[in-house]
């Protein structure tokens, strides 16, 4: 049973189906231990966007206001897709790197500990 409803075969229509986003997919991005940004950020991106474009063109607009951002050594960043380690190929697209609609990508930046070392 997937719902307690008057009609036993009731089905809901998912409101965030991929086809509702005009060719984009939702992507959730989260910079670990930089809690100044209160939550992961939601962005609509085309699945054909190269990972390098996400990293070099999109993320600065989202996170560039943090004093740690300019100090990130991108070759030392750990990436995660959902909870798993993830090693994206920068020249391949987001889809080719295995991301789907509503994927959650997290990254950690070792050595950068936020405002005053507080994880902010």
């Amino acid at each position: 049973m997937t719902i307690r409803a008057l009609s036993p075969d009731y089905e809901g229509t998912p409101r965030d189906a991929e086809e509702n986003f005009h060719g984009n997919r939702l992507l959730f991005v989260y910079w670990q231990n930089h809690a100044m940004f209160c939550s992961p950020i939601c962005i609509p991106v085309p699945p054909t966007m190269p990972f390098a474009a996400l990293r070099d063109e999109v993320l600065p607009g989202l996170y560039g206001s943090h004093p740690d951002f300019a100090k990130i050594k991108w070759n030392k960043v750990h990436w995660f897709h959902e909870q798993e380690d993830w090693k994206p190929n920068p020249s391949k697209t987001l889809a080719e790197n295995g991301l789907v609609h509503k994927s959650l990508v997290q990254f950690s930046t070792p050595g950068l500990t936020g405002i005053g070392g507080s994880g902010t």
Binding site: V29, F37, S39, P40, C42
Partner: peptide, 8 residues
């Protein structure tokens, strides 16, 4: 400061 993105 404001957050320039929208939240998940």
């Amino acid at each position: 400061w404001f957050n320039p993105g929208l939240p998940m």
